[in-house]
Amino acid sequence: MLINCVAYKDGAKLADIPVADISEYIVQPGCFVWVALSDATPEELNEMQEEFGLHPLAVEDARHGHQRPKIEEYGDSLFAVMHLIEPASESANGLNVGEVDVFVGRNYVLSVRNRSKLGFLGVRERCEREPELLRSGAGFVLYALMDAVVDRYFPVIDSLEVELEAIEQRIFTKGAPRANIQQLYELKQRVMVLKHAVAPLLEGASKLHGGRVPQVCAGSQEYFRDVVDHLGRINASIEAMRETIGTAIHVNLSMVTIEENEVMKRLAAWASIFAVCTAFAGIWGMNFEHMPELKWTYGYAGALFLISGTCSYLYYRFRRAGWL
């Protein structure tokens, strides 16, 4: 679906134009066209390939989707793939992974957004409010799109950190370790989703501000350096969270073992107490003829007193030792 198709010249908006007129505008000096598509069909991609002269390999990647984040150079044009991470729903803890494919040339920008409800209208408005920067052309638009994508990672990682802190506070709650381990593994999976979005993009974006910079990004290196800095901070936070989750999992496993040992100690203590009762009852339950206690008037009461006294003493000792 076509979101918008706008022509710009010298940093100012000329007009919203039909797709069929794109080829007429991109040949004008100082003019470039910015097109935004959402869940584009193969026919729409073929039409854009014809209008902009896109590289067929890049178009094939955009058509198939589900690409690894990357930035590839095709002659004098760039093809960037970025993951859009957003909560699956207000009630679920999962993450929805969308994708935006950006084709950037000297006089055009084409963004294709897939499997995501959040658009980039705010990015276009921001660029149009800064005509002196928009005058830099397609390179600045690529930066603005990348910056918007990266900024959306910060709320996600903040929510993951809040969830991790909540689990950490419940680590030593009695009866909670097993549930905590399940939540930690689910959290670890979401952290890895974010890791797979950030790490490859960090590697690709590093090529846009240092060394041999692609021609379409010339003059915008300092802006891409800012994006790389943000990605570096997010990547460092992800690594710290992964280490904390690993430590929390080990602590929870230790807590499970400790709780199981506590149960075993209680069972062993009660088994010892009942073993004493069984031993006394077994001795006096033997059918020997010459057993003096059997003829004693107070033998039954004495036996009960001895059994209860011994068991009470054992209970006291186990209780003092922390087994009961």
Results as ranks from 00 to 15, higher is better:
residue 240 A to T: 14
residue 305 F to P: 00
residue 304 L to F: 12
residue 119 G to T: 09
residue 112 V to G: 07
residue 179 A to M: 11
residue 173 T to G: 13
residue 251 V to C: 01
residue 17 I to K: 04
residue 95 L to P: 06
residue 316 Y to Q: 13
residue 175 G to M: 03
residue 239 E to D: 15
residue 161 E to F: 10
residue 31 C to N: 07
residue 70 K to Y: 09
residue 246 G to L: 02
residue 156 V to P: 05
residue 143 Y to A: 02
residue 177 P to S: 13
residue 195 K to S: 14
residue 125 E to D: 14
residue 132 E to N: 10
residue 162 V to Q: 14
residue 324 L to W: 09
residue 255 M to C: 11
residue 68 R to Q: 12
residue 134 L to Q: 09
residue 310 T to R: 12
residue 128 E to Q: 02
residue 166 A to G: 05
residue 202 L to Q: 15
residue 191 V to D: 09
residue 81 V to C: 01
residue 24 E to H: 10
residue 295 K to R: 13
residue 153 Y to P: 15
residue 52 F to I: 08
residue 319 R to T: 14
residue 257 T to G: 04
residue 193 V to Y: 12
residue 105 G to F: 08
residue 174 K to H: 11
residue 186 E to P: 02
residue 155 P to L: 12
residue 227 V to G: 06
residue 208 L to F: 04
residue 176 A to M: 10
residue 259 E to G: 01
residue 182 Q to W: 01
residue 104 V to C: 15
residue 185 Y to F: 13
residue 305 F to A: 15
residue 248 A to R: 04
residue 271 A to T: 13
residue 207 K to N: 11
residue 17 I to G: 06
residue 52 F to N: 10
residue 112 V to D: 15
residue 245 I to V: 12
residue 246 G to V: 00
residue 320 R to G: 07
residue 311 C to P: 05
residue 236 A to M: 10
residue 156 V to T: 15
residue 47 E to G: 03
residue 15 A to Y: 03
residue 26 I to M: 04
residue 35 V to P: 05
residue 323 W to N: 12
residue 217 C to Y: 06
residue 216 V to M: 06
residue 9 K to F: 00
residue 237 S to G: 06
residue 206 S to G: 14
residue 263 V to A: 13
residue 127 C to P: 01
residue 62 A to W: 03
residue 198 V to R: 08
residue 137 G to I: 05
residue 51 E to N: 09
residue 211 G to F: 01
residue 93 N to K: 12
residue 256 V to D: 00
residue 168 E to P: 03
residue 54 L to D: 01
residue 63 R to P: 01
residue 27 V to I: 15
residue 133 L to T: 01
residue 316 Y to L: 14
residue 92 A to C: 06
residue 38 S to W: 10
residue 58 A to G: 14
residue 296 W to A: 11
residue 261 N to W: 02
residue 72 E to W: 04
residue 321 A to C: 04
residue 259 E to K: 03
residue 117 K to F: 06
residue 219 G to A: 12
residue 244 T to G: 10
residue 287 N to P: 12
residue 49 Q to R: 11
residue 225 R to F: 04
residue 146 M to P: 02
residue 1 M to N: 09
residue 47 E to I: 06
residue 287 N to I: 09
residue 171 I to M: 12
residue 85 I to H: 05
residue 226 D to C: 01
residue 94 G to W: 06
residue 49 Q to G: 15
residue 193 V to T: 13
residue 294 L to Y: 03
residue 150 V to G: 10
